[in-house]
C-alpha cells in the first residue's frame, strides 16, 4: 500500500477574515488525498482557488477551517522550515528587484536545511553538500551556464527554470508547481515535463501542479482535480475528468475531446472555424470563453 503524501480535510479559506462582513470563500470545503509518488494536476477556471490551494498546502496560508496533513503530520503544528524540507513550492510569479545571482537564488532552497546554533555566526553558511545539490539542480534545469547572472537580468523562462532548480535544491518529497510552463517555450516545456516525470519515477517524488494547459495535465498527470468556485467539481484519472460534458459545465464553453494519437489519452481542442460555422458563432463562442474568467 502506498503512503499518503497529503490528506486535505474540509478546508475553508478566505482572504478576508470575516471581520468586514461575511468572508468570501476562495476554497469552501475541499477534501482530497494525494498518494505518495502520484502526479496530481489541479485544473479549473481562473479564480477557482487553484493557487490558494497550493499555498494552503505549503503553509504559506493557513485555512480558517479544516486541516492539511503532510505525511501524517498536521501542517498547523509544523514549523515553517520543517514543511519546507518536505514540500517545495514553485510560485507563479517570482519578481526579484535585488541583484541576486542565479546561483544565490538556487541556494536559497537550502535555507530549510541550514545549520542552527552559534551565537555570533549562526548564519548557516552553505556546506559543500549544499553547493553540490545546487549545482546539480542548475545542470538539471539548464541554467548552470547562467549561474553568475543576475536573476533580474535573465528572461522569464530562465528565471522560471532557476526557481524550479531552487525547489529541487530543497530536496523535497513533494513538489508543488503553479503554472510551471507558463513562461516557457515548447522545448523547455517538454524538458520540465520530462524532468518531473523522471524525478517522479526515479525518486518517487510526488508532484502537484496547477496548470491551465488541459492537455499537459491530461498527458502527464495520474490524477486530475478539477476545481470550480472553490469546490471540487471532479477528481479522477484524466479519462474521467477530461470529458466534454464536464469541461463544458465548468468552463462554460464547448470543447472537443478526442484521443492523443500516440498516448491515447484524452486531448482537448477548442472548436475551430469549420466546426462552429461562421463568424457570428465564433464571436459568440469567444465571449463564452471569456465569461467564466470573471
Amino acid at each position: 500500500m502506498t503512503r499518503q503524501a497529503y490528506a486535505v480535510e474540509q478546508i475553508r479559506f478566505s482572504y478576508r477574515d470575516g471581520r468586514n462582513g461575511a468572508p468570501a470563500w476562495v476554497l469552501d470545503g475541499v477534501s482530497f488525498e494525494v498518494a505518495e509518488g502520484e502526479i496530481l494536476g489541479v485544473i479549473g477556471p481562473n479564480g477557482s482557488g487553484k493557487t490558494s490551494l497550493l499555498k494552503l498546502m505549503t503553509k504559506v496560508f493557513q485555512p480558517q477551517a479544516g486541516a492539511v496533513h503532510l505525511f501524517g503530520h498536521e501542517l498547523a503544528g509544523m514549523p515553517q522550515d520543517a514543511v519546507a524540507r518536505v514540500a517545495a513550492l514553485v510560485p507563479q510569479d517570482s519578481q526579484q528587484i535585488f541583484p541576486f545571482t542565479i546561483a544565490e537564488m538556487v541556494l536559497m532552497g537550502r535555507f530549510p536545511h541550514r545549520r542552527r546554533g552559534g551565537v555570533l555566526l549562526g548564519l548557516g553558511w552553505e556546506r559543500p553538500e549544499d553547493l553540490r545539490l545546487a549545482e546539480h539542480a542548475m545542470v538539471e534545469m539548464d541554467v548552470a551556464h547562467l549561474s553568475h547572472r543576475s536573476i533580474a537580468d535573465v528572461s522569464g523562462g530562465e528565471r522560471q527554470r532557476a526557481i524550479i532548480a531552487r525547489a529541487l535544491t530543497q530536496e523535497p518529497r513533494v513538489l508543488l508547481l503553479d503554472e510551471p510552463t507558463a513562461f516557457l517555450d515548447l522545448n523547455h516545456q517538454l524538458d520540465i515535463c520530462r524532468i518531473l516525470g523522471h524525478l517522479n519515477e526515479e525518486r518517487g517524488l510526488t508532484v502537484i501542479l496547477v496548470s491551465h494547459d488541459l492537455n499537459l495535465a491530461s498527458q502527464y498527470c495520474d490524477q486530475l482535480l478539477l476545481l470550480k468556485d472553490g469546490q471540487i467539481f471532479q477528481i479522477g484519472t484524466p479519462e474521467e475528468v477530461i470529458r466534454p460534458e464536464i469541461l463544458e459545465a465548468v468552463y462554460g464553453c464547448q470543447v472537443l475531446v478526442d484521443c492523443h494519437p500516440v498516448t491515447g489519452l484524452p486531448r482537448v481542442t477548442l472548436p475551430g472555424r469549420t466546426v462552429a460555422g461562421g463568424a457570428d458563432k465564433r464571436a459568440h463562442d469567444q465571449a463564452d470563453i471569456q465569461k467564466p474568467a470573471s
Binding site: K55, T58, K59, V60, Q80, D81, A82, V83, A84, R85, A88, L89, P91, S94, Q95, Q96, I97, F98, F100, M108, G109, F111, P112, R166, Q170
Partner: peptide, 12 residues
C-alpha cells in the same frame, strides 16, 4: 526579498 509568501514557503 523574494516576498513574504515565497520566504514562508522556503521555511522562513
Amino acid at each position: 526579498t523574494l516576498g513574504e509568501e515565497s520566504a514562508r514557503s522556503l521555511g522562513v
